[in-house]
Design a protein around this nucleic acid. Sequence first.
DNA 1: ATCAAATATTTCAATATTAAAATATTTCTA
DNA 2: TAGAAATATTTTAATATTGAAATATTTGAT
Lengths: 153, 153
Amino acid sequence: MPTHYQGSESEVRALNVYIKLMRASESVTARLSAFLQSTEGLTVSQFGILEALYHLGPLNQSQIGEKMLKSGGNITTVIDNLEKRGLVQRRRCEEDRRVVYADLTEKGREMIGNYFPKHARAIEYEMNALTPEEQDELGRLCKKLGLQERSSR
Amino acid sequence: MPTHYQGSESEVRALNVYIKLMRASESVTARLSAFLQSTEGLTVSQFGILEALYHLGPLNQSQIGEKMLKSGGNITTVIDNLEKRGLVQRRRCEEDRRVVYADLTEKGREMIGNYFPKHARAIEYEMNALTPEEQDELGRLCKKLGLQERSSR
DNA sequence: ATCAAATATTTCAATATTAAAATATTTCTA
DNA sequence: TAGAAATATTTTAATATTGAAATATTTGAT
């Protein structure tokens, strides 16, 4: 389903890659999200925060926001929901009382420790559509793309 | 920022590609979304529907949902908002009265016709991080990934 | 030391998103 | 043809998301 746009060759090429990149990431995410939802009742965002805390230890909310490329208000909301479910705890920083750290509860640690290997296998399965060499090449290209900073136009 | 997970080589490779794929698509989307929001006050979903109607003509809501990989309820909401802004009109199908077609209004057609070339240039600019050959290769790899259907596990 | 600027989080209003239930309509089958 | 099953859309409740305004706290400049 290529673009229907009548533009320059370079625009058409870019539009077609863009469409395929979005399709790939959305369809992989949709499958992983369904798995996450059906097995643990977690959203992708909730999982992302649990995973970051699991692998990196306690983080404050600004740090989490940067890591996830999400706004501060969003992190507040998602952590509210994780706290409601008893998976995460907030702790006000003593040295700088503006800051709030989030950390896993025992329940949260157990859930993510248990789930993460399944997540890894699910991703491995998804990526099996590509050979190891293709995976490395895809990683390299995505990295180049993601890094691009747009100062102005 | 590679994965911290201690898994098999194949799992680690897959996790790393996955992270980069998500980063790339999210950061490109974030930049395009900011542009869309600041110039037209449109969301990515609204733009997606306007663009589909522009290039494909009137579509019913099921067709739009399939195209966008979104749920029926979601399409109802986004079209509600497009209708509020006078960019899209609903029309009940006469032959099958369950079906509702959406079509651009004159205002909607003008907006998207005017905006789309800017969108194409913005994407061209994003993809300039890669050579034309790299773009084609990225497209090929993404297509292979996106196609993968998961029946069961 | 004081006060303005910067920083971290929360709140708010608007939009997006899903799954599931409800509604309307059509199609299929006994 | 009547009723069941299928299909299309809407509604609802819960969560996500943003940008902007509000609040709390710290830092920096005079």
